[in-house]
């Protein structure tokens, strides 16, 4: 089984604080992996390294056969834009834009023409139960609605990998379930690989398997398994 994404011996410190101390993780194409572990153990840092947001001090990250360590800052940011999607705990929608513009944003950044981008963004609204909310601003949405908009934005460009950091962290359990149902169904549908950071077992139970991060290391057997 070849991994689409892997971390090998990744170390990273913030000043004197070691956040990752030799983290290994290997994710198969199309797999949904939950990353669990105590607060401060290094889950988000690992996700940021895997996604090429942070460059590790030591160890390597590979995506689709390419060593991210060898890429320039610019090349990594292109990779993030073209191949990766992101959903965070708080949707981080752009408040000045309408929801449909927010969803279209990754397409616009990738150079898709505005009318085509808006059209593709609109297609997500029915699917995620957001019909009629296209022209609202993010301040006019409930938390669950905003999170579904963020999910649409994360998926609209058809990423190879979706990185989700506590995507249901701010939601009640039924709303969180709705977001997870949609996330998993869409990822399966598109064959998107998902790295899902969560401390909630009920959320992790949507994944194909879970790994635990403790003190900057991945402790549960971390080999990729076929989904």
């Amino acid at each position: 089984m070849t991994a689409i994404l892997s971390a090998t011996g990744v170390e990273l410190s913030f000043g004197a604080t070691p956040a990752l101390r030799g983290a290994d993780l290997s994710v198969a194409e199309g797999e949904i992996v939950a990353v669990m572990g105590p607060s401060g153990s290094g889950k988000s840092t690992l996700l940021h390294c895997l996604a090429g947001i942070l460059a590790p001090d030591a160890g390597e990250i590979t995506f689709d056969g390419v060593r991210l360590n060898d890429l320039s800052e610019n090349a990594r940011s292109e990779l993030r834009r073209d191949r990766f999607g992101f959903v965070f705990q708080f949707g981080q929608l752009v408040p000045e834009l309408t929801t449909v513009e927010n969803v279209a944003l990754p397409l616009l950044l990738a150079g898709v023409r505005r009318d085509a981008a808006i059209r593709r963004a609109r297609e997500w609204f029915g699917r995620l139960g957001l019909d009629g909310l296209e022209t609202r601003r993010s301040g006019e949405l409930s938390g669950g609605q905003a999170q579904r908009v963020a999910l649409a934005r994360g998926l609209v460009a058809g990423p190879r990998v979706l990185f989700a950091d506590e995507p249901t962290g701010a939601l009640d359990s039924l709303t969180g379930e709705q977001v997870m149902d949609l996330l998993v169904a869409t990822a399966r549908d598109q064959g998107t690989t998902v790295v899902l950071v969560t401390h909630e077992a009920r959320v992790a139970a949507y994944a194909d398997r879970e790994v635990m991060v403790r003190d900057g290391r991945v402790t549960t057997p971390a080999e990729a398994v076929a989904p």
Partner: peptide, 20 residues
């Protein structure tokens, strides 16, 4: 405790599939 955690999560995955 790690083993218990894994079996609990494995059962939770089964139940999540049932739910879907």
């Amino acid at each position: 405790l790690d083993g218990q955690r894994r079996s609990h999560l494995a059962r939770m995955r089964e139940l999540t599939t049932v739910k879907q």
